[in-house]
């Protein structure tokens, strides 16, 4: 038990240092963008958040498959924890995106494939969390959630493809995003570092959430024992 606690502590400290360094790089080290100026710095949080939500949903799908195969309850716990974090980060993506788009594209929102897919992704996993809380039978709820998590993840590339087809039917104006070609080396370093920091943040949150979910399980088992 003591060893586990120490591991948590080390993980939290590493994440803390990484995020702090990431903030320094994003706000001070990286040069301001030529045309967009300082507003472009949101890029270093926007892209890593999207990345984290994508890993999180991948973990939901994977844990769901393993849960259906093995029936072991801890995989369901992992999927549930990961889904919550994924939804949190996709919400961050959907908030930072329009904030960045308004000064740069002069609009909060366009029905671009990536934007629309993120939005649909948010809807799917919000539904996933609702589904989890709406089923009274725990064991059955876990199976439902696993099935929905798998379909939801398989759906992501399909949604992206269909929307890309849909939008390319109309010529969209060429929009100057922050990423793409010609990223200054300092910017690239910062981005890469922030990706790393956010990945660690995800792992830390996942471990803590998974742990607390386990405590809840334990508590309920004890309560059940006392009542009988």
């Amino acid at each position: 038990m003591k060893n586990i606690k120490l591991t948590y502590l080390v993980l939290i400290v590493i994440t803390y240092m990484l995020v702090l360094t990431g903030l320094y790089l994003a706000f001070i080290y990286a040069p301001p963008e030529k045309t967009m100026g300082d507003v472009q710095r949101i890029f270093y949080f926007h892209v890593p958040s999207a990345w984290v939500s994508f890993i999180a949903f991948f973990v939901v799908c994977l844990a769901g498959i393993i849960f259906l195969k093995t029936g072991k309850e801890q995989w369901d716990r992992l999927a549930a924890s990961s889904a919550e974090i994924g939804v949190l980060f996709i919400v961050i993506v959907l908030i930072t995106g329009p904030l960045w788009a308004k000064p740069v594209w002069n609009t909060y929102w366009t029905w671009d494939p990536r934007l629309t897919t993120s939005f649909v992704l948010f809807l799917i996993y919000a539904a996933y969390l609702m589904l989890r809380s709406y089923v009274s039978n725990k064991e059955r709820g876990a199976r439902f959630a696993a099935v929905f998590g798998i379909i939801g993840f398989v759906d992501v590339p399909i949604v992206y493809m269909s929307i890309r087809w849909w939008r390319t039917q109309h010529p969209t104006p060429v929009i100057g995003g922050g990423s793409g070609s010609g990223l200054a080396p300092e910017m690239l370093t910062t981005l890469m570092f922030c990706l790393l920091a956010f990945t660690f943040l995800y792992i830390t949150l996942l471990v803590l959430r998974y742990q607390s979910e386990g405590v809840v399980k334990e508590f309920q088992a004890l309560k059940h024992k006392l009542q009988n």
Binding site: L123, A127, L131, Y134, I151, G152, D155, V159
Partner: peptide, 20 residues
Amino acid sequence: ANTKSREVMLPILLFPVSVP
């Protein structure tokens, strides 16, 4: 059909996934 509020749950699950 096996959830607490089935009339609400179905469209919430169904429509986002069937976007394509």
